[in-house]
Write a protein that binds this DNA or RNA. Structure first.
Lengths: 199, 199
DNA sequence: ATGCATTTAGAATGCACATTCTAGATCGAT
DNA sequence: ATCGATCTAGAATGTGCATTCTAAATGCAT
């Protein structure tokens, strides 16, 4: 007893991510997602209770992959590996990285996502932040700088600087050049700088 | 002959920018802009032909301020001053910087802006890129690195890294701490690194 | 073979928004 | 004092979207 489904949840999630990567959040309308999958719009609601549920499900999965890459090296005090992991992830899955690293969940959602998803996303975020705090603790022990500044420098080195280096390539949807890793390494080594030779 | 206007164009532009800064692009609906100014929605159309025209006008003005800060030092080979100018601008006008540095024009517009505005924005963009190219030329003369890499490093140092350092504070709407300038200087000096003391 | 829970299929609904429209107010030039 | 261009004021319109609804199809358990 049951009719077999032609489309499953993952089809819709993948379509939503692809549409956002190509055309921004507004491009991932229910009609566009359905069209991309080849399903009627109504079928989506047999899998997801709302558009926000699809977007949040996609986000949760991307965040899971991101945290799996970043949290272990951070907790182990290997900040350089974490930054490298970020770049490697972007290389391997440029579509998802483009969405996760360049967009903001709040801006993509229209309404509120299901509570369970919201909690899961917050928990994963907290998981990453705990690993990051461990890293900051370790850095703070080796310096006299105020903790605020240590944390800001670490956040920049591990997250924001690699993302900034990737940004042009994420926007263009093209493979980042090899020197991105080189610059990340230089920054973490702290003994060579990007753009030597500037006036 | 004429009734005097109670609201002028700038009121609407300022309201739109403030709304985007607070709640993202979707928060700047025509109704919300009118409400913020205290005007009826219809009055907006006596000044602007469309929502896209308001957004594009706001963008053009923010970009003008940004280019005025960045292009002269870049053209003069003073990359550090350009990066410092970016941070100083964000400090002085955090609301506009928040919108201009964190959002994307395409994503904010709904339809196409008036052609004249589109052209003006492209021209200002080109003005900045020309100054940037001059800077890259100068950097390229002093190194054996391929020009692609020199350009990427310069773009990072001048634009993306300062923006990444400001990002947490732009998102929070809070004044950036003084060490942002210090880190920018260190990166441009090329002889000290953020987050010394990391494992 | 038949029943029926689940699905496809896509039309109908309702809502939020940009835009347009109608009425009436204002004030400088005459 | 009056005219009329330009404005305020806010209701009406049209569109695009998320969501819901109705009908028909499907295929396993019996």
């Amino acid at each position: 007893m049951v009719r077999l489904a032609r489309f499953d949840a993952e089809d819709f999630v993948d379509a939503a991510v692809a549409l956002i990567a190509e055309g921004g959040g507004a491009a991932a309308s229910m009609a566009a997602i359905a069209r991309k999958v080849g399903a009627p719009t109504g079928s989506i609601y047999h899998r997801f209770e709302s558009r926000a549920a699809i977007i949040a499900t996609a986000w949760q999965a991307m965040q899971r992959a991101f945290v799996d890459r970043m949290a272990p090296p951070l907790a182990g005090g290997r900040a350089r590996d974490a930054a490298r992991g970020l770049v490697a992830w972007a290389r391997e899955d440029i579509t998802r990285a483009r969405v996760f690293l360049l967009y903001d969940l709040e801006a993509l959602l229209d309404g509120a996502p299901p509570e369970a998803l919201r909690r899961s996303i917050v928990a994963q975020q907290e998981e990453l932040e705990e690993a990051f705090r461990a890293h900051v603790d370790e850095c703070a022990r080796a310096t006299t700088q105020p903790r605020d500044e240590v944390a800001a420098r670490a956040r920049f080195l591990v997250f924001d600087a690699p993302i900034a280096l990737l940004r042009p390539h994420l926007l263009a949807g093209s493979q980042p050049p090899a020197f991105v890793e080189r610059i990340v390494d230089e920054m973490h080594a702290g003994d060579a700088m990007p753009a030597r030779g500037a006036a």
